[in-house]
């Protein structure tokens, strides 16, 4: 079958559109966990400190720090791990600051996400991409 140039361009454009239309965002495991934590409430961006190395020297032990002033609890997720949950930090009446440091396992390069529940019932989050490398001869 012979295509006119017009027809060819139309078919090409249609094909391109099919390819570039973004797939409806698959609800990832991490998103589902955030939904559960917040009960579907809005989550503001910012107001949560998340400190993690840009490049993790080893994915087995990655030091991170999370903090949010006035937070009652902070949930940390590793979006790319087979199971995203990392920890939920709850701060009691004698907590000196609403922050904590720990060391976590990251299966590969991915986003680490921290979602904070504030004392006033609002939610905020921050995310950081951590590159996880494989080094050396594998020894």
């Amino acid at each position: 079958m012979e295509f006119t140039r017009r027809e060819t361009l139309a078919v090409g454009a249609a094909a391109a559109m099919v390819v570039t239309i973004p797939m409806p965002a698959m609800a990832s495991k991490a998103d589902a966990l955030i939904e559960e934590f917040t009960g579907g409430a809005d989550v503001a961006d910012g107001g949560v400190d998340l400190d993690a190395p840009e490049i993790a020297e080893n994915g087995n032990t990655v030091p991170i720090e999370v903090g949010a002033e006035g937070a009652e609890a902070i949930m940390v997720l590793a979006a790319g791990n087979p199971e995203p949950p990392v920890a939920t930090f709850r701060f009691g009446p004698l907590a000196g600051a609403h922050r904590a440091k720990t060391r976590i396992r990251l299966a590969g390069t991915q986003d680490v996400i921290a979602v904070a529940k504030m004392a006033d019932g609002s939610y905020a989050k921050a995310a950081k991409t951590v590159k996880v490398t494989i080094g050396g001869c594998g020894g």
Binding site: T133, I134, G135, G136, C137
Partner: peptide, 8 residues
């Protein structure tokens, strides 16, 4: 030098 992503 680097050996893959490791610093020798």
């Amino acid at each position: 030098n680097m050996i893959r992503a490791d610093h020798l």
